[in-house]
Each structure stands twice: as C-alpha cells, then as structure tokens.
Nucleic acid binder design. Structure first.
Length: 276
DNA sequence: ACGAGAACCTGTTTGC
DNA sequence: TGCAAACAGGTTCTCG
C-alpha cells in the first residue's frame, strides 16, 4: 500500500469533500478484503463530511450522522476525484463510488482488492478491530526513544520485521523501513532486542525525517499509486536503497553495492558495509 | 505464545 | 515473440 506518506497525501488530496453531502454511494461487488457493510449505501446517502483524518494507514472520514468511514488502500488501492458529470462508467476495478452532487465524485479503485471500505460509529472507533491495537503515530509525543527501545526489546525478530509491526509504531511499510534503516546504519538483519537506547533515539529521528520528506514530496509513485488529483508523487526519486539492488551505495566513501535479501517473504534493500 | 511463511488478488516486469 | 515465473506499497491466518 501506500504507506503513511501516501495515505497522508490522499487525505490532503480529498480535502475538498469536507462539508459536502453524499448524494449517492454504491459498492460494485460484495467484498474487498472484508465485506462491504450491507447497509453502506443507506448510511452514507444524505450524510455530510465533517472531517478527514488519517490514523496509521487508514483514512477516516467523519460524517454528521455520528458514523465514520474507514478506508484502507491495501497494496494497490487508489482514490480519484471527478469534477464534471456525467461521471465515468466504473472500470472493473472501481469497487466503490460516492457522488457529492453533480460536480464532485470519489472513486475507489483497487485491482488487488487487499484494501477495504467500511463504516463504524465515530464514538466506537477506538474499539474497532483494525484500530484498537495500533501503536503510536510516528509524529505523536508518545512515540519516542525510550518507548521504542522498550518495545523493540520485547521482540525477538529482526529490526526490519519489528518496524513493520503496526503495534510498535503505526504507518511504516516496506519502503520506508528500508530507508530508515539505511539512514541509521542499522542492518535489517539485526535483532530487534539488540537495538541500543542510542539507536532507538536515532530511529525515532530517522522515521520522522524520512516520513516528513516523503510527505513533502507528495508521497511515492510506484506501479499503481497516484494522488487523488492524478498527479504523481516524487519521493521515489529520493530512495537511497529501496529498489536499488546492485547500484552503488550512495554514501560518499563507500564502494559497496546495495543488496537485496528476503525477510519473511519481503524484500529488504541495504548496504552490507554501511549497515551493521 | 511467537515468528516464519502462506494466503489473499491482479497486473506488470523479468527471464528463458 | 511467447509464455511462465517472479515480483509488487499490506495484513491476517495457519502451522510448527
């Protein structure tokens, strides 16, 4: 999926649906990763958007009927807006559509169908199965060096897997974990419980730094992710290690090349010389 | 209880 | 050129 910066970019990209009233909503298949709620269309139609928020990689859309839409983009989910009716005929991967009158429509497109759209009473979001166990937001005060140190100490897996664990810190994905580990000179193979306090502090700084830069660049555009306005993000041009297998390590005095290894079925890119 | 690996899907790229 | 295999931003389930 889109990781945190891409989801943040989508949230900003759909800001104009705020204060707009849903005139039509429809899902075009019964389920994605989870079923669409049976009464989704009835609940949404006539409701007005109060606020758009992000929690981890979830898009939260608060409505004036005390309900909140929860949207997850999975690996290949994409949201696009249309401003002129008649709106396009849904493509076979456009699984959910909302109209806000005749000059604004939101389409949810997801070929791999690992994402989902659901709804939850706003006051019950904290208890929702997808949200209740999430770790802290990377930019929140409760995410800090001592907290991360303690959490990493509990895990017996490698640091790569630990940072992907949404219960430790919410929002990181495969790309940004690779970049963060490169920036902190920590090998993805290092045991999570061997991370020092100093390294935990450095990880907090690097996580915020990498995510901030990615958000500023409008996220990363890979195979099938684009912002809501159809423009592309640019952060992919700043990847130092992700997707750089066999390229020279970008560190000034390093003559090594970037390696790719598989950890728990997912690619990790790193410099064997710089990252220990 | 925990972690590695498989599973869930389709589309695109890579390699023979 | 053509086809099969590998690979892809995530999460959750099963199995050892």
């Amino acid at each position: 999926m889109p990781e945190l910066p891409e989801v943040e970019t989508v949230c900003r990209g759909i800001a104009e649906i705020k204060d707009r009233t849903i005139s039509f909503a429809k899902n075009y298949r019964p389920n994605l990763r989870i079923p669409f709620p049976e009464d989704l269309s009835e609940i949404l139609t006539g409701a007005t958007v109060i606020q758009i928020r992000r929690r981890a990689k979830f898009i939260l859309i608060d409505l004036d009927n005390e309900m909140t839409m929860i949207i997850h983009l999975g690996m290949s989910g994409k949201i696009t807006l249309h401003h002129t009716s008649p709106y396009p005929t849904p493509n076979k991967h456009d699984h959910f559509i909302m109209h806000f009158g005749d000059n604004l429509a939101l389409y949810y497109y997801d070929p791999r169908r690992f994402g989902f759209v659901t709804i939850c009473p706003t006051d019950a979001l904290d208890q929702h199965q997808f949200l209740k166990k999430l770790g802290p937001e990377p930019f929140a005060n409760d995410f800090n060096g001592p907290m991360l140190y303690d959490a990493l100490k509990q895990k017996s897996t490698n640091i790569k897997q630990a940072l992907l664990d949404q219960h430790i810190v919410a929002g990181l994905g495969n790309i940004y974990v690779c970049e963060v580990l490169y920036q902190t000179k920590i090998s993805p193979k290092k045991n999570s419980n061997k991370i020092t306090k100093k390294q935990a502090e450095a990880l907090v700084v690097a996580i915020r730094d990498v995510l901030n830069k990615a958000i500023e660049a409008g996220g990363s555009t890979l195979k099938d992710y684009a912002k809501a306005d159809g423009d592309l993000g640019y952060f992919q041009h700043q990847f130092l290690v992700y997707g750089q297998e066999d390229n020279d390590c970008p560190a000034p005095h390093c003559s090594d090349k970037i390696s790719r290894i598989t950890q728990s079925g997912r690619s990790s890119f790193y410099c064997p010389s710089c990252q220990k």
